[in-house]
Simulated scan of single mutants.
Amino acid sequence: MKQSKIKIIWPNNITTIVNEGDDWFSAAEVAGIEIPTGCLTGSCGACEIDVNGETVRACISNIQSETDCSLSVAFTTDPFWEN
């Protein structure tokens, strides 16, 4: 089965093309972005990103798109994780 290509627009205004099912951390690294991490099990929420307005925990989800559109990524803000 052929994997779908997905266009991602990152917070640094870099656009990349990835395969559906790729992991968020590898895709972000290609774009020069570092997604914060914490527990890496989905419990703490440190890796939360907003994808087209929906909050996703990058450590426990892969890149998916239900349509052939691009995905716009933004970082969530949580005062607990800020310095």
Rank of each mutant, 00 (worst) to 15 (best):
T37D: 00
E34C: 10
D23T: 03
I8F: 01
I35N: 00
A58R: 02
I17D: 08
N19R: 10
F80T: 07
C44T: 01
E34H: 15
L40T: 13
T76N: 11
G42D: 05
T15Y: 02
F80G: 02
E54S: 11
C69Q: 15
T55I: 14
A27Y: 04
D78F: 10
I63A: 01
T16C: 02
E48I: 13
D78P: 11
F80K: 05
S43P: 02
K7W: 10
G45H: 07
S43Q: 11
A74M: 14
E66S: 13
E29V: 05
I35S: 03
E48L: 14
G38P: 07
T37I: 14
F75Y: 14
A74C: 12
D50R: 15
E34L: 14
K2A: 12
T77W: 15
T41I: 12
C39Y: 09
G38R: 14
I6K: 00
V51S: 12
I8Y: 06
C44K: 05
T16R: 02
G45Q: 03
I9E: 13
C47L: 01
T15S: 11
F80I: 10
T55Q: 13
T15P: 00
I33R: 10
G42F: 01
T55Y: 10
N52C: 08
G53S: 07
A46G: 04
L71W: 08
V73E: 00
N13D: 13
T41S: 14
E54T: 12
I49Q: 04
G45W: 03
G32I: 03
D68A: 14
N52G: 10
F25W: 00
W24G: 06
F25D: 00
V51W: 07
G32D: 11
K2I: 10
P36Y: 05
D22R: 03
E66H: 11
Q3I: 08
E66Q: 08
D68C: 08
A27S: 14
V51Q: 12
E66W: 07
I49T: 02
C47K: 12
V51P: 06
I60P: 07
I63C: 03
D68E: 15
